[in-house]
Design a protein around this nucleic acid. Structure first.
Lengths: 331, 331
DNA sequence: CTGAAAGCGCTTACAG
DNA sequence: CTGAAAGCGCTTACAG
């Protein structure tokens, strides 16, 4: 790779002049400039981002820490983040943790070593000290999907309203015994959905039915197990709310195996739709999450914080997106 | 952030000694070492990766270029890549192109600026010159999923065998008029599936039925449109092969709307399963792809090439994974 | 308009 | 075992 020095030598000028010419950072004589451009072109010169980063203290890179990508809403969020970051001139480093706090710690430690200008995280909540340290040491952080630290900016969906709205909707459809599949109540989104669910259940004077299992939360199996449990233990059950799409699929399976008809005998809906619902044989009613847009916004927010630097007093911003009810055939 | 210099000053030694102590790169007196460690700890020293990278000419970072993540097999592959890369001490920069050659070019240009030690790509095939340039300039490249350049290493699945095997399987199930939804025949995987399909169709003396549409290939809609077309134009149709899961979902929808029973009247299967098939109401038979494992292998391969450096003569490696037939209720 | 110098934070021969 | 120096490839005050 040709360096500035190579170009300088070939163009018979100092490296500083080449730098100025190529970056348009101060006036350079048109002739000199032309010569420099020609030489740079001929040598296939490309600036070394690493050297620039070291010198300028800017990496133009953000780190994104999420639990997983495969069949999860995070893949859509990450696509949104990455597209927007790229547009703003930033690269995106990704880390998937499988919600393992140790892996997460490992990722955060890597990222803090001057790797990135800012961090986006959907965390486990188990490394909050590190996260606060990072943030306190001047590295902008934005929480996505999961808001755990009030002093750190966040972009989330309004899960509580989502849970509440879903129950009211099902009530309107005639349901009176509504089971909830949620799990991982230590994670904010699950807890909030649960809270919204409870609020609505109470307001409507119904009885809550929460089901939990011990397998991975964001999975078909989890939905299947919980739904089966609800079906056997609550005889009057007429609706199941699943926290995420995959659980919804599991619930559909369980209900079908129980010989019940959807939506006539039992209604099913997902609280975190990511398009999948529309593609099913029995299209599933869902609270759809504007994941791509949330990724966009979060990237913008993070990069703004990065570019504001320490000049401005930091005030955490919390952005909450409404989820939208998309009615389909499962209810 | 504390730097080496800060530690050196506080420990009353030269920076070089600190560097050696912290990196265990040569003998340092135990007492000095202890002092340095204590000071580094107290100051919360963390090495600056950017400076290390500049000095050592190693970034410990790989770039991954894929079309998309959301509801695509790439999300699983990327998870595999990232997990393995992290284990080997590498970070992963991700770029999604939506198969837009311009975006891809943009990504490759960013990555070549000394950003990464190596590149993993599932490309559009439209930037082959750049890719070859990159590779020729000494940056290791591994093609994933889509093998376009014979001189560049690759990790793919055996799509041709997959297409062939699927047809034979359906034949055994009694099908005699087997339609194929594929599209994007300019992309290797689609073309290879088609080739395998044709080989089998010919061997069995059947008639081929290929359907294409103009929307995004990797989508529910594409599958729906093509299946609808096949259903109306081929009256004896008794099976549909979909290149990917989402198309399979679209095909199921189309078939259902046509009032046909799966699998009694028409069988459906996907040629690129990524678990989704097992979660459907009518579980879909699929050729499942070992995506995670492929990601692992590809990361290993790329990092090996990186670490081999220029010492060894480069010989491209091509790795092909078999897909495995998982029989479910749609056939 | 341009050059010479310093420095970003490290590592690594080179001496001693 | 340790220090002083050079240098990775840039940018940016400082002179002129």
């Amino acid at each position: 790779m040709a360096t500035l020095k190579d170009v300088a030598r070939a163009a018979n000028v100092d490296v500083s002049t080449v730098s100025r010419a190529l970056n348009n950072t101060s006036h350079v004589h048109p002739d000199t400039k032309a010569r420099i451009y020609a030489v740079a072109e001929a040598l296939g010169y490309r600036p070394n981002f690493i050297a620039q980063a070291l010198r300028q203290g800017r990496r133009y890179t953000i780190g994104v820490v999420v639990p997983r990508l495969h069949l999860a809403i995070f893949s859509e969020i990450v696509q949104g983040i990455e597209a927007e970051a790229r547009k703003l001139g930033y690269s995106t480093i990704i880390c998937t943790t499988e919600d393992d706090p140790k892996v997460e710690l490992d990722c955060l430690n890597r990222l803090r070593n001057g790797f990135v200008d800012g961090i986006m995280i959907a965390g486990t909540g188990r490394n909050s000290r590190i996260l606060r340290d990072l943030h306190a040491s001047g590295i902008p952080v934005v929480q996505i999907m999961r808001k755990q630290e009030p002093r750190i900016s966040s972009v989330v969906a309004d899960f509580e309203a989502c849970g509440e709205e879903a129950v009211h909707y099902l009530y309107q459809q005639g349901c009176r015994t509504i089971g909830l599949i949620s799990g991982s109540l230590h994670l904010a989104p699950y807890q909030e959905r649960y809270r919204g669910y409870c609020t609505a259940i109470q307001a409507l004077a119904l009885t809550p039915h929460l089901s939990e299992a011990t397998t991975t939360v964001n999975s078909f199996e989890y939905g299947y197990l919980c739904a089966s449990q609800l079906l056997t233990s609550v005889s009057t059950l007429d609706a199941i709310l699943a926290a995420v799409d995959l659980q919804g699929l599991g619930a559909i399976r369980a209900v079908t195996e129980h010989g019940l008809k959807i939506p006539q005998q039992i209604k099913i809906m997902s609280l975190t739709g990511h398009e999948l619902g529309s593609m099913l044989e029995t299209p599933m009613t869902s609270m759809e999450m504007p994941a791509h847009q949330m990724g966009h916004k979060a990237a913008q927010m993070l990069i703004e914080e990065i570019q504001a630097g320490k000049q401005t007093q930091f005030v955490p911003q919390h952005l909450s997106f409404p989820m939208v009810l998309v009615e389909r055939e499962s209810t």
